[in-house]
């Protein structure tokens, strides 16, 4: 089993390398450092000297991939690729292009607030969608089931923005249950987080319940359920003991993949509700055209997602005896 997991890890590393190369190509071959400088400094009042100065300050006054004027191994190392992109693999994110702050520190500081929103959202969503899906699977083929299905499709068809805007309007303005936005540290700050979590859960519920229900129904039609009934088990035991355990395998594994990514935070929620997490970090960087931050976040996001993929393999070996012992 360990060998299998190690092999899966080895399979994922070249992917990370590929991503690194891809982001490098994207960021530095589409826009050379010159136009980057121009964008940040503001299109108009720049001249060549200001551009060069900016490039020197931020370390972009080097050739991209290959430095012919250097000597020996420095032909490779005194390049933008080596200085800026390779360190990403070691999680050294460098400094911002906009105001030169240390990106890694900012990430560390902002991880907390993001997690404060995403972790509760994850757990509440998981429990509620599984329970609701099981309940509706129990009542399958009834008018209630049909109604819930229609409701789920409708909920899925609404943009997250509407949930946010509408939710904020409903809960903060009309009902006055929560504050509009803002953030506070510690437990006192919990009230700022409740509404984003609630809205986040609501926004994703439709699709997730439908998916879970599909998984349950697929299991219910399998042969071993017929055997369970032939043994004399009631519908409840059949669903909650036999079907559930099998259904949890695909459900859990589809959910586990998102766990590492929880750190990244939800961009829209954080921006709307003023949560100083990694999501709003990205949004700010977009608005400021801070390429270094965007680059770092893209890489970090990929790393976390890939970690999630590996976590899925781990989950499978733990949860599915066919993988563990087959």
């Amino acid at each position: 089993m360990m060998a299998y997991l190690a092999r899966r890890l080895a399979y994922l590393l070249p992917i990370l390398l590929g991503v690194n190369l891809l982001t490098f190509g994207l960021f530095f071959f589409v826009h050379g450092p010159d136009s980057m400088a121009r964008t940040i400094l503001g299109e108009r009042h720049v001249d060549a000297e200001m551009i060069e100065r900016w490039k020197r300050e931020h370390g972009y006054d080097l050739p991209r991939l290959w430095n012919p004027s250097a000597r020996g191994v420095e032909k490779l190392t005194r390049t933008i690729f080596w200085q800026k992109n390779v360190p990403l693999m070691a999680l050294e994110f460098g400094r911002s292009d906009f105001d030169n702050h240390a990106i890694a520190e900012a990430i560390r500081a902002r991880m907390g607030p993001s997690l404060k929103v995403t972790v509760p959202m994850f757990m509440v969503s998981l429990v509620t969608t599984v329970v609701l899906a099981m309940w509706i699977a129990f009542h399958r083929n009834t008018p209630l089931d049909a109604a819930v299905l229609v409701l789920c499709v409708v909920l899925m068809s609404i943009s997250t923005l509407f949930y946010i805007i509408g939710g904020q309007y409903l809960f903060a303005r009309l009902l006055r249950w929560f504050p509009f936005s803002g953030y506070g540290e510690g437990w006192a700050g919990a009230r700022f987080v409740l509404m984003p979590v609630l809205i986040g859960v609501l926004a994703g519920m439709g699709g997730q319940i439908r998916y879970n229900r599909t998984v349950f129904l697929e299991e219910i039609h399998r042969d071993y359920i017929r055997t369970a009934r032939a043994k004399g088990l009631g519908e409840g035991a059949v669903l909650f003991r036999h079907a559930l355990k099998n259904a949890m395998i695909p459900i859990l594994t589809s959910v586990v993949v998102t766990i590492p990514f929880l750190i990244m935070g939800n961009l829209l929620l954080e921006n709307f509700f003023g949560i100083p997490g990694l999501g709003s970090y990205v949004v700010d960087a977009i608005q400021k055209q801070d390429f270094a931050v965007v680059r770092a976040m893209v890489y970090l996001g990929t790393l976390l997602y890939v970690a999630g993929l590996w976590l899925v393999d781990v989950a499978y070996t733990l949860v599915d005896p066919r993988v563990r012992l087959g």
Binding site: R222, D223, Y224, R226, T227, A228, A230, H242, K245, N246, I249, D320, P321, R322
Partner: peptide, 13 residues
Amino acid sequence: MIFQEPMTSLNPV
């Protein structure tokens, strides 16, 4: 009752 396909007729987990 016993059925035709023993692999799928037993709960795999």
